[in-house]
């Protein structure tokens, strides 16, 4: 039950995050997480983890796809700029930022539902 609601939330964040990400600013990912957990009534721990996975997939996945088409030229340069060891650190950071946005958004949404219900 827990796993299933977690996966549902991840999938929702992934799909809605990808669609809305192209039209709205970066912080929409936190709202997507919150709205998803609220609507799906995801329990708090599942919301956090599900949001984390979904957010990581949205930002990390898109970044990975772009990076692949670019042969890693820019991520390598950004790594040099940031003093990072490798371009994979930049990909990882992107995924983590997305993950954090969606996970805390989802946790907030989940707890909001519980607080009001």
């Amino acid at each position: 039950m827990m796993i299933r609601s977690l996966l549902w939330l991840s999938a929702t964040v992934l799909v809605a995050g990808l669609i809305l990400g192209f039209v709205l600013p970066w912080w929409i990912l936190a709202l997507v997480g919150a709205a998803g957990a609220w609507l799906l009534k995801t329990p708090p721990s599942a919301a956090w983890i599900g949001g984390f996975v979904g957010g990581a997939l949205v930002w990390g996945g898109l970044a990975f796809w772009i990076d692949n088409g670019n042969s890693g030229i820019l991520s390598g340069r950004i790594a040099g700029l940031a003093g990072a060891e490798s371009r994979y650190a930049i990909l990882l950071a992107t995924a983590v930022f997305g993950a954090l946005l969606a996970s805390f958004g989802a946790l907030t949404g989940s707890l909001a539902r519980r607080a009001i219900a």
Binding site: G21, F22, P25, W26, W59, L62, A63, I66, D67, L74, I78, A93, T94, F97
Partner: peptide, 9 residues
């Protein structure tokens, strides 16, 4: 860092 609007673009 947003891959939708940031440097990834």
């Amino acid at each position: 860092f947003s891959p939708f609007s940031g440097f990834w673009q």
